[in-house]
Amino acid sequence: MRHWPLTELSITTPRLVLRFPSLADLDELGDRAAEGIHEEGFMPFFVPWSETDPAERARNAIQYQFRTWGAFTAADWSVEFAVVFEGQVVGVQGIMAKDFPVTREVKTGSWLGRRFHGRGIGTEMRRAVLHLAFAGLGARHAATEAFEDNHPSLAVTRKLGYQDDGIFMHSRKSEPVATRRFRMLREDWTESPGFEIHNLAPCLPLFGLDTP
């Protein structure tokens, strides 16, 4: 799409394709959300959108994507990539930033269909957006945050070499709960072989950049 080049942006890894989602991709994402993305009695998100019935979970997942599309500006952007594994959309990997040309800091967030857990997909898709951040966009920092009881997310973060960056208190379902924040500096990032970014150059002005 000439006026919205993000539709052609993608990242490929040895096993995955991360791409700006098409409407067909969103339909598949709705299926993954309806099937379930975490076990019962656990809430990894600030907004408990995944505790509704399957049909509403699917709609919530799709509507969130529409909201990110409509709210995208160079000063405050979020790209939510559909993650494709063996030809099937399996989850979402997001990367977002505010005032990126000044701060050079990105944040990440993701979810993965429950039946695809335990295969290293979560780690690989996070590596992919770190590659976009550092190799493609010229980021200096990458931050992430997770509830202290979200052990799978924390395991991915530690595996990738982030450093502790503080604890924050939040209200989750009217109960106090801590999140752990982590940060990776560009000099601590290690480029992974087989990771490639496609069609980034036409998108740079949307991120507020002339060059990385």
Rank of each mutant, 00 (worst) to 15 (best):
Q63D: 11
F100Q: 14
F85C: 11
R104F: 12
L132D: 00
T179W: 02
P202T: 05
A97V: 00
I37E: 07
T68N: 09
F20Y: 10
T52L: 13
C203N: 03
R181L: 03
G94N: 05
G118R: 09
P14R: 11
L206C: 03
R140E: 03
E148D: 10
F42Q: 05
K159C: 01
A34S: 09
W111N: 00
D210E: 14
S192G: 06
L185Y: 13
A128Y: 00
T7C: 14
D210L: 14
R57I: 04
A128V: 04
Q65G: 07
A155W: 05
P212L: 10
P21T: 03
F72Y: 05
D76E: 11
S174L: 14
I121E: 07
T73K: 02
E51T: 11
C203I: 01
K173C: 04
P176C: 06
F81P: 01
T190Y: 15
T73F: 07
I95H: 01
A61F: 05
H151A: 11
A143R: 14
L26S: 05
T211H: 14
T103L: 09
F182S: 14
L130M: 15
L16W: 08
F85Y: 15
L200D: 10
G120K: 04
S171T: 15
E191H: 12
V47R: 13
K98D: 06
A178S: 13
V17R: 08
Y162P: 06
G30Q: 12
D25L: 01
D31K: 15
T12I: 04
L26R: 12
E39I: 12
T13E: 09
L130N: 09
L16T: 01
F85G: 10
W4L: 13
G138H: 02
E196W: 03
P193A: 14
E8D: 10
A24R: 13
Q65W: 05
D165C: 12
G208R: 03
G87C: 09
Q93G: 03
V47F: 12
H141K: 08
L206A: 02
I167V: 14
G208M: 01
W77K: 01
A55K: 02
L16P: 01
V84W: 12
L200K: 15
Q65L: 09
D149R: 09
L18W: 01
K98C: 04
T13N: 04
R2N: 14
R140F: 00
L16Y: 05
F207S: 00
V83S: 01
N150V: 07
D31P: 10
M169N: 15
E35Y: 07
K173M: 10
D99H: 12
A97H: 00
A128Q: 03
